[in-house]
């Protein structure tokens, strides 16, 4: 069985892409080329590595060097090429197979929490920052929509295919390729929009509507991701807590929606005040009934002026 000589693995942060690349290389006896080894390969071949400050021109020159070095090497021993825009660098290589590994936002968050031993909010920050760095590298260098599935032979969701199954699936898929695929080269405008898109049991219909508005604008959110203890009894047990409705990852902002009449929101206001006293670093915005009505009116959802 002839496998492609270059298998590129692109992956979302904490999607198990690294593990899959490693395991695939082990199973097939291929060389794994990652960020570190591509640098040493280039340097040992007399090329310069990618500078810290990148632009399209520098990336192009670097990408040509990588392509030359890796293709030559892969003809002697096939490689698994992890990250680094491999899907773009080897885009026109007929003997390359491109895989994108993704998974659900919840699983990525969970893995980030476990890996960094952090709570949900801190882990969300970490994930956002890692995504931003990856996005920046790929956008500034490739100028293409790296999440466009058309760029890949195969897109695998590790929520359904754990590492071993994913490797088996990739191998099976490589056997069955019938035509080389030309990849789309044009970036879209919506590269980084990561919509909530989650199935969430909202407590109130207004929250669901609000989530739809956030999704419409591509604002990434989590629903009630964190509970803040507000009061404790003498034994240290939490007797009052507050879970703001939404957390907007890209803005480090909690949103509390309330559709109660203004005179009935004193209890919620008290909780918000207490939260601000106890957790001054936490940013929270309360959207009151009147604000929410304005918001709905603006978006034409309810127009009762």
């Amino acid at each position: 069985m002839d496998y492609p000589i270059i298998i590129t693995i692109s992956r979302e942060t904490e999607s198990l892409g690294d593990e899959i690349a490693l395991r695939l290389a082990e199973v097939l006896g291929l060389e794994l080329i990652d960020r570190e080894s591509v640098s040493s390969l280039l340097l040992s071949s007399g090329y310069e590595d990618l500078p810290e400050s990148i632009d399209k021109e520098k990336f192009l020159s670097w990408a040509i060097s990588v392509r030359d070095v890796v293709v030559k090497r892969a003809h002697h021993r096939p490689v698994v090429f992890l990250g680094r825009g491999g899907q773009k660098i080897f885009e026109s290589e007929p003997d390359a197979f491109h895989v994108l590994i993704v998974t659900s936002p919840e699983m990525r968050l969970q893995r980030t929490m476990e890996k960094y031993r952090q709570d949900e909010v801190t882990a969300s920050h970490i994930l956002v920052e890692l995504d931003r760095k990856r996005e920046k590298f790929l956008l500034e260098t490739m100028g293409a929509n790296w999440k466009d599935p058309v760029m890949y032979h195969l897109v695998l969701n590790t929520a359904f295919y754990p590492v071993e199954r994913a490797c088996e699936t990739i191998m099976e898929a490589m056997k069955n390729v019938v035509v080389p695929v030309r990849h789309a080269e044009q970036p879209t405008l919506f590269d980084n929009l990561d919509f909530g898109g989650k199935k969430v049991d909202f407590v109130h219909p207004s929250e669901e509507e609000f989530a739809r508005i956030l999704d419409f604008y591509g604002i990434r959110w989590l629903y009630e991701p964190r509970q803040f203890p507000l009061e404790w009894d003498n034994e240290g047990n939490v007797i009052e807590a507050f879970s703001p409705d939404f957390y907007l990852l890209d803005f480090d902002l909690f949103i509390e929606l309330t559709t109660q009449k203004q005179k009935l929101v004193w209890r919620k206001n008290r909780k918000v005040r207490r939260l601000r006293e106890l957790y001054p670093q936490v940013k929270i915005k309360v959207i009151y009934s009147r604000d929410y009505t304005h918001l709905l009116r603006k978006f034409g959802v309810e127009d009762n002026q």
Partner: peptide
């Protein structure tokens, strides 16, 4: 595109 036109995501 406008939210009220029923689009799931904003478009140009």
């Amino acid at each position: 595109s406008s939210f009220k036109t029923g689009f799931k995501k904003i478009e140009i």
